[in-house]
Amino acid sequence: VSEWTEYKTADGKTYYYNNRTWESTWEKPQ
């Protein structure tokens, strides 16, 4: 699942961004 990158927002929430599909999600990808 290497295309997903984990980021943190300014208020400390974690989200995930897909470099291949430009998708972002709050849930941890499978």
Rank of each mutant, 00 (worst) to 15 (best):
S2E: 13
K13Y: 11
T21W: 08
K13W: 06
E3P: 07
E23A: 02
K8Y: 09
T14R: 02
S24Q: 11
N19T: 13
G12A: 00
N18D: 04
T5I: 15
V1A: 13
W4L: 02
T25I: 10
T25R: 09
R20P: 07
T25Y: 13
Y15T: 00
W22E: 15
W4S: 01
K28M: 07
E6T: 03
E23Q: 04
K28W: 09
W26I: 09
Q30F: 11
W26L: 09
K13C: 14
Y15P: 03
Y17A: 03
P29F: 05
S2K: 08
Q30R: 06
W26H: 12
E27W: 08
R20F: 15
S2Y: 07
T9Y: 08
E6H: 00
Y16I: 00
V1I: 11
N19I: 11
Y16R: 00
Q30Y: 09
S2V: 08
T14Q: 04
Y15D: 05
K28Y: 09
T21Q: 02
Y17R: 06
T14N: 05
E6W: 04
Y17Q: 07
T21V: 02
W22I: 08
E23W: 04
E6Y: 02
Y17H: 07
Q30E: 14
R20H: 14
Y7L: 13
K28D: 12
T21S: 07
Y16M: 00
Y7Q: 08
E6F: 01
G12E: 01
E23F: 03
G12D: 04
Q30M: 13
E27I: 09
R20K: 14
E6S: 03
Y16L: 01
W26T: 12
V1F: 15
E3G: 10
P29D: 05
Y15M: 12
Q30V: 14
Y17K: 09
E27T: 09
Y7V: 11
P29K: 03
S24G: 12
E6L: 02
Y16H: 01
S2G: 13
Q30H: 13
T25E: 05
E6N: 00
Y15E: 05
T21E: 05
N18P: 03
S24A: 10
K13P: 00
K28R: 08
G12S: 00
K8S: 07
E27V: 10
W4N: 00
G12Y: 00
K28T: 07
Y15K: 08
E23V: 06
T25W: 13
P29L: 03
Y7W: 12
N18T: 00
K13M: 08
A10D: 08
E3N: 04
T21G: 03
E23M: 02
Q30L: 13
S24Y: 15
T21D: 08
S2H: 11
Q30I: 14
D11H: 04
Y15F: 13
E6P: 03
W26K: 04
A10P: 13
N19H: 10
V1Y: 15
G12T: 00
E3W: 05
Q30K: 10
N18S: 02
A10G: 07
N19K: 09
V1H: 14
W26P: 09
W26R: 03
T5S: 10
T14D: 06
T25Q: 12
T21H: 05
W22A: 15
P29T: 04
V1P: 14
A10E: 09
S24M: 14
T14C: 00
E6G: 01
E23S: 01
G12M: 00
K28S: 11
E23I: 04
W4K: 00
W22T: 14
Y16D: 03
A10K: 09
T25D: 04
Y16G: 00
D11N: 08
E23P: 01
W4D: 02
S2N: 10
W26N: 07
K13F: 08
N18E: 04
A10T: 07
E3C: 11
N19Q: 11
A10R: 07
R20G: 13
G12F: 00
R20V: 15
Q30C: 14
S24H: 13
T9R: 03
W4P: 01
T5G: 07
E6D: 02
T5A: 10
W22F: 15
T21N: 06
N19R: 04
E6K: 03
W4R: 02
S2P: 13
K13I: 09
P29N: 06
T9K: 03
K28V: 11
K13G: 06
W22L: 15
W4Y: 04
W26M: 12
T25K: 10
E27L: 07
A10H: 11
N18L: 01
N19M: 08
E27A: 05
S2M: 11
Y7A: 09
E3V: 06
W4G: 01
S24P: 05
S2F: 10
D11G: 09
T21K: 00
T9V: 01
N18A: 00
Y7H: 12
G12K: 00
R20Y: 14
W26Q: 10
K8G: 02
Y17L: 10
E27G: 03
Y15I: 11
K28N: 10
E27H: 08
Y16S: 01
A10F: 06
G12P: 00
P29A: 06
P29R: 01
T9G: 11
T9L: 06
S2D: 13
E27R: 01
T5F: 11
W22D: 15
W26D: 12
T5H: 10
Y16W: 15
T14P: 08
G12I: 01
T21I: 05
D11E: 12
S24V: 15
E3T: 04
N18W: 02
V1D: 12
W26S: 10
S24K: 14
Y7N: 10
K28I: 11
K13R: 14
Q30W: 11
N19D: 11
Y7T: 06
K13T: 07
W22M: 15
T9N: 06
W4I: 02
D11W: 09
K8A: 06
